[in-house]
Write a protein that binds this DNA or RNA. Structure first.
Length: 990
RNA sequence: GGGUGCUUAGCUCAGCUGGGAGAGCACAUGCCUUACAAGCAUGGGGUCGCAAGUUCGAGCCUUGCAGUGCCCACCA
């Protein structure tokens, strides 16, 4: 009866005091480390490397929780489970932080120069870069920390250079002048997928371009127009009075009787870079204009009218201004027609020297002035308000500017093909499968990838220019001299690579590629990539084509996708809304286990999930529930009394080999071995049997990546079956009972709880470790060997033990290196399970009656059971103590004759054909009881009609499977028997 | 314009290859029954978006429709 000193658990689970200590122990035990081990199968996950600028947000929390679940589970299954951690240099995000810091100090990139800037960045990385990994530790992540990688580590940088050089050598990387997305705020090009398109209110300006008159007559008018337009430009730049001059020009045109082609644009400032106007060749309206020219207003340049299929006659005015240097389509048109490409903006998106009078103006200011000037000149035909999609920088949300620029590109088509095949052949599978369609759709329509960035923080492009001869040398190391002309002065390309270029190599660069390392041999390809569906394009697809290209294999066999975390209202969590749940805050308040639980429970793969306070609270409640169940079990395993009662551990150690740590081994050895020869009761066999089924189901769900479902099942079992039923069923034996019965109950309690701790461990690692360890200690000196076997790399004190004669009660040094529970056929106990279920139904039924009749729980009642079934009679007598305790029944009789039992009992219940008579005497309202029975009769009639109708249907009886028909017949018979009894009881009420 | 999800209890969501609808929260009633009031017991609550079809049988399969979300796309 005295508690184990020091092993008494707190009444309320206090995660914060437990988690740090436990994590420390795992580290000390070296359990996270995985090494190539020929005796085991590998299981590998590489972490999606968080940005060094990052702070753990709830998105990371889900992503890493799922990974940790998988890796802990596989580790327990005996795999050499490697979870490779690391961080991403995040070139643009990090650079922005440094720039910001410099600004606060009153200096800038330009001022301190590249070298100093990089020093700053590295220092910053040293200081903050590991923060997020520390936060992952608080979440419980079991990464192999000694393998931590960073995308700018020497080895990984080597991989980057290697890939660049190889692709360049094959012509799959090229340098060229294209329209790229330019972010004026970040001051760099970005790739297509880094642009977000949003609907914005804007205008569609219809602008009249004066057509230069054909033939000789044109001369005078042209001159006039030129003067007028030129005057407009000059004036516009000079003063508000500009409008007048421009107007003069237009007037000249009107007076000259010239006509116009009207174009429409949402970006009028780009007109200064127009080098043509295009119409559809089939458009009759413009047939006569093709081949002629227009005078570009405000610029005073004469540009051709061309015909191109690209133009949609239905859209706008059917005539398009062509600005090859500022629009991707126009660029293509320009190529087809050999048009000049005139850039009119600089890298800050201000108008450049080619913009004449508008030079130096910001693009929006220029837009305003140009519109005003056109209007004043009478050349603005119409201003149409219009919502259109505007590309914005996904990082800073500045409106991007499509600008012609010389950049480096990866030629995608040749890389995409094999990557598509890899998924089509199922070498990499998306979970759920529907994401493969998204992948295909993107890969099949892929554009070349702009990989150069005008940033300093990142992998510098390994291209070297010879100013003497113009040669470009691409090499792993900077060449001593120009390979062509031998000049010594080579200049490296100033640009760096897209941060995703290095992330794309992550699954193999972290393993040491391009070297042929043991890790590459053993752990690669990886097994699962866990990530959100929002980065399929950015990362997943790029890893696949990179890996297929460079390693000849897929980077991972499965891609397990999860959704986004939303708030209670279903909104995306964002900084600006301030609706984000801070995972660290949740960990602080409710524990990492509760957070992990809330993020995992009941979620289907690929679906978004909502995280609310209520959900977190119920997760915390579950942890507490489990905690208290463990308290109960530990209290009852007791101190000194225990050893005698259980005939010690020697018996356990020598005993069952069944399934290494199976509760059966514990329980049966108690049942058959010990003094007093205690037997397992039907309650024990029932819970063991259900536990066993849980093991099977949970494992199957995990195998199918249905983590949410696996956890749901474990949760249901622990709460509804183990806590609410089994513990209650065990109490009578623990409190009363002889030593043998007590021993059996204890063994089962401990065995099942231990198994639950193991099954739950991947999801809730801390609390399960605490419980498992406490159980191990309670098993006595031979049990837990905390630390003693900690040296076993990636463990498996337990699993190795199971290979060589596992004692039933072996506890591993840590639950995380214990062997994952196995389904064990010997635990199936159908007869006992049926009996127990029957008793439970009886208990429920009596409780129900009592509750409906408002019978105080303290008031005991006597009950008489009548049944024809031998099994039921056995169950009732075996379950007597359960029924008495859990249904508040005092005296108890099982009779064969219902007439006598029924005589003075107003309340009659029918459960599975057995009848229960309870004399509640004065409590019974005969009227109400009769009504209840009538309702019951109605219900049974409906059921009988349904089942009867179904069985009468020949289609059903001839085509449905036999088992289904059999079930239906049994149901019908049951209902009919029940109806007879209910009808009889109703009749008796008079 | 394409593609792709979703629509199940008041709310948030599960529901595996088609065989009588589930959980959490909320709600109602009664319980401090010595593991847990962050709890226990009992209960109410659903024409599974609508309509056709396939099937002996449909929440699940097919088609259409209606709402709603997301992704992609070069509508100037």
């Amino acid at each position: 009866m005295p508690m184990e000193q020091g092993k008494q658990l707190e009444k309320v689970y206090a995660p914060s005091s437990v988690e740090k200590r436990i994590y420390r122990r795992w580290l000390d035990g070296n359990y996270f480390h995985a090494a190539a081990d020929k005796s085991k199968k590998p299981f590998t996950i590489v972490i999606p490397p968080p940005n060094i600028t990052g702070r753990l947000h709830v998105g990371h929390a889900v992503d890493n929780t799922l990974q940790d679940v998988l890796v802990r589970w596989k580790r327990m299954q005996g795999y050499a489970a490697l979870w490779m951690p690391g961080t991403d240099h995040a070139s643009i995000a990090t650079e922005a932080k440094i720039v910001e810091a410099l600004k606060l100090e009153g200096t800038s990139k330009a001022e301190i120069g590249r070298e100093k800037f990089l020093e700053r960045a590295w220092a910053w990385r040293e200081l903050y870069g590991g923060k997020i990994l520390e936060q992952l530790k608080r979440l419980g992540c079991s990464c192999d920390w000694e393998r931590e990688r960073f995308t700018m580590d020497a080895g990984l940088s080597e991989a980057v250079a290697e890939v660049f050089v190889r692709l360049y050598g094959e012509g799959l990387i090229y340098k060229g002048e294209r329209i790229i997305n330019w972010c004026p705020r970040c001051g760099t090009s970005i790739s297509d997928i880094e642009v977000e398109y949003n609907e914005r209110d804007g205008c569609f300006w219809h602008i009249k371009y004066p057509v230069v008159p054909a033939g000789g007559a044109a001369g005078g008018a042209l001159a006039g127009a030129t003067t007028g337009a030129a005057g407009g430009v000059a004036a516009a730049g000079a003063a508000p009075g500009a409008a007048g001059s421009a107007g003069t020009g237009a007037t000249t045109w009107a007076a000259g009787g010239g006509d116009f082609i009207t174009v429409a644009t949402t970006r009028p400032e780009t007109m200064l870079g127009d080098t043509a106007v295009a119409v559809n060749p089939a458009d009759p309206r413009y047939a006569g204009y093709i081949g002629r020219t227009v005078m570009l207003p405000l610029a005073g340049r004469e540009i051709p009218i061309i015909a191109d299929e690209y133009v949609d006659s239905e859209f706008g005015t059917g005539a398009v201004k062509i600005t090859p240097a500022h629009d991707p389509n126009d660029f293509e048109v320009g190529l087809r027609h050999g048009l000049p490409r005139l850039r009119v903006m600089d890298d800050r998106a201000a108008m450049n020297e080619n913009a004449g009078a508008y030079s130096g103006l910001d693009r929006y200011e220029a837009r305003r002035r140009i519109v005003a000037d056109l209007d004043a000149a009478g050349l603005l035909a119409k201003t149409e308000p219009r919502a259109h999609s505007v590309g914005e920088c996904s990082r800073c949300h500045e409106t991007i500017e499509p600008i012609m620029s010389t950049q480096w590109f990866v030629k995608m088509k040749p890389l995409a093909g094999p990557a598509i095949d890899a998924v089509r052949q199922g070498r990499t599978r998306f979970v759920p499968d529907r994401f493969s369609k998204i992948y295909f759709n993107w890969m099949e329509n892929i554009q070349d990838w702009c990989i150069s960035r005008q940033l300093w923080w990142g992998h510098r492009i390994p291209a070297y220019y010879c100013d003497a001869c113009g040669e470009i040398a691409v090499a792993r190391q900077k060449p001593e001299k120009c390979p062509k002309c031998g000049a010594a002065a080579l200049r490296q390309d100033e640009d760096t690579l897209d941060t995703w270029f290095s992330s794309a190599l992550w699954p193999f660069s972290t393993m040491g590629w391009p070297k042929r390392t043991p890790e590459m041999e053993y752990f690669y390809p990886t097994d699962v990539l866990v990530t959100g569906y929002d980065i399929i394009f950015f990362w997943v697809a790029r890893m696949i084509f990179s890996a297929v290209k460079h390693t000849g294999d897929v980077p991972f066999r499965h891609v397990y996708m999860h959704g986004l975390v939303r708030d209670a209202q279903g909104r995306k969590m964002s900084k600006s809304l301030g609706n984000g749940v801070d995972p660290l805050d949740v960990i602080e308040r409710c524990g990492a286990d509760a957070l992990r639980f809330a993020l995992t429970i009941g979620n289907a793969p690929g679906n978004d999930l909502r995280l609310s306070d209520e959900k977190i609270e119920s997760a915390r409640n579950f942890a507490n529930k489990l905690w208290n169940a463990a308290r109960f079990v530990l209290m009852n395993l007791g101190g000194g009394e225990q050893a005698g009662g259980e005939s010690g551990d020697g018996e356990g150690d020598g005993g069952g080999m069944a399934g290494g740590g199976s509760p059966l081994a514990d329980a049966q050895s108690a049942g058959e071995g010990g003094d007093g020869a205690p037997q397992l009761t039907m309650a024990d066999r029932w819970i063991l049997s259900d536990y066993n089924r849980l093991v099977k189901e949970a494992t199957e769900h995990l195998d199918r990546f249905e983590l949410g479902m696996a956890l749901q099942k474990i949760y249901d079992f622990i709460w509804d079956e183990f806590c609410d039923w089994y513990i209650e069923l065990a109490k009578p034996r623990l409190l009363g009972g002889d030593a043998g019965q007590r021993g059996a109950a204890r063994r089962v309690l401990r065995g099942v709880l231990k198994g639950c701790a193991q099954l739950l461990h991947p999801f809730m690692p801390f609390i399960t470790e605490e419980i498992y360890t406490a159980l191990g200690e309670s098993a006595g000196p031979g049990g837990a060997t905390d630390g003693a076997r900690g040296g076993a790399v990636n463990g498996a004190a337990d699993s190795s033990a199971s290979g060589g004669g596992a004692p039933g009660e072996v506890f591993a040094a840590s639950v995380m290196v214990s062997a994952w529970p196995q389904y064990d056929e010997a635990l199936e106990a159908k007869a006992d399970t049926d009996k127990m279920r029957f008793v439970m139904s009886v208990i429920k039924s009596i409780r129900n009656r009592r509750s409906e009749m408002n019978v105080h729980p303290g008031k005991k009642a006597s009950a008489v059971f009548v049944t024809d079934s031998r099994e039921q009679a056995d169950a009732l007598s075996e379950g007597r103590a359960f029924i008495e305790r859990l249904a508040s029944v005092s005296s108890f009789a099982i009779e064969g004759e219902r007439a006598r039992a029924a005589s003075d009992s107003a309340v009659a219940l029918v459960v599975d054909g057995a009848e229960i008579f309870i004399p509640f005497g004065e409590l019974v309202d005969v009227q109400k009881e009769a009504e209840r029975l009538k309702k019951e009769l109605d219900r049974l009639d409906r059921e009988i009609a349904r089942a009867g109708g179904r069985l009468a249907n020949e289609g059903f009886t001839s085509k449905a499977p036999a088992s289904v028909i059999e079930d239906e017949r049994a149901k019908l018979a049951g209902y009919e028997a029940m109806r007879a009894k209910v009808a009889d009881n109703l009749g008796r009420l008079g």
